[in-house]
Design a protein around this nucleic acid. Structure first.
Lengths: 169, 169
DNA sequence: ACTCCGTTAGTCAGGTTTGACTATTTATTC
DNA sequence: GAATAAATAGTCAAACCTGACTAACGGAGT
């Protein structure tokens, strides 16, 4: 939740935007780093507005429907910095989904278990390939670091999973 | 949410239990693999009961307060297996918290950024140390695999973070 | 015999998240 | 030029999660 605020504040710090723009950017460019959905973004924006961290102005362009343009306030910038330092210093939680299944691996015949994990491995490899194809972003080191981070962990995950599938043979 | 159901069904498949027992086991033994909270477990149990996947019986021992004992049903076992295969085959989402901050690293003076990440690294190392100290569980390979998985990724994370802190110097 | 405290066993209000939906405008196809 | 698709810009009810709270019991100490 703090992360979501941080993300939106950060994007608005770079440039005032309306909701759709924010959501599009997140979906198209940040899907590797966050999984926040559209409706959530609007909910968070409401909360930020209620807290005085962002302001909202109606804007009409041509005869398209009016849109809400959000801009970060002074308090918002202060909060942004506070959140930034806080989340940077915190150890990431790194609670990965999918490990509960692993725990109950013994309930499946060995061969079926291996097949499931092989399928998981294939999906993982595909995801990693898609990841490795995207070029460096170039917008400062931060964004690139975040993408690199995910990649490093995906690779570690893949290598480990390969070993497991092998061991199950 | 599927994962939470899977976990509870799996635990109940091994042995009928009451809510407190389940929660205690999760908190004491599975905190490395899941972060489900007590109240959530009760909520999930209610849903499972509503779906006919588990049954609930009142039980009184001595004159202690009565407790609800949950047991998995036939349908529950079928659903367990379905969920197990499904989550095993799915690539884990691996969306790690903390990377949003990374994206905005440039907003901080380099030295402060480095200090924050160094602090994160320290916390991570501590967590890893705690992890490495727990012995093998021995209850079949599944549980051990899950624990190993987390460890492998924590190590990869640590190594990467070390490199980043170094690079920022 | 009384108080304090930890264990047992939950409940609940309130906040968060999201899938599904609405509604308008612009572009495209037939 | 009518119908269809796609982009624009959100809203809302329902589901989900959790921090904080309740309440009874047993045992330890005094």
């Amino acid at each position: 939740m703090d992360e979501r605020s941080l993300l939106l504040l950060g994007l608005l710090k770079a440039q005032s935007q309306h909701g759709y723009q924010l959501n599009e950017f997140i979906e198209k460019n940040l899907s590797r780093v966050t999984d926040m959905k559209k409706a959530t973004a609007y909910a968070v924006l409401d909360r930020l507005k209620a807290g005085g961290l962002i302001s909202e102005t109606m804007e009409q362009e041509g005869n398209r429907p009016p849109r809400k343009v959000f801009a970060i306030t002074g308090e918002g910038e202060a909060e942004f910095e506070r959140l930034l330092v806080e989340t940077l210093a915190a150890a990431d939680r790194l609670v990965l989904a999918g490990d509960i299944g692993l725990m109950f691996l013994d309930h499946l015949p060995r061969e079926q278990a291996r097949a499931c994990l092989a399928q998981r491995l294939a999906a993982l490899e595909e995801r990693l390939a898609a990841h490795e194809q995207t070029p460096q972003h170039g917008h400062g080191i931060g964004v690139d670091l975040a993408v690199e981070h995910v990649q490093v962990l995906l690779r570690a995950d893949r290598d480990w999973l390969r070993g497991v599938v092998e061991r199950l043979r």
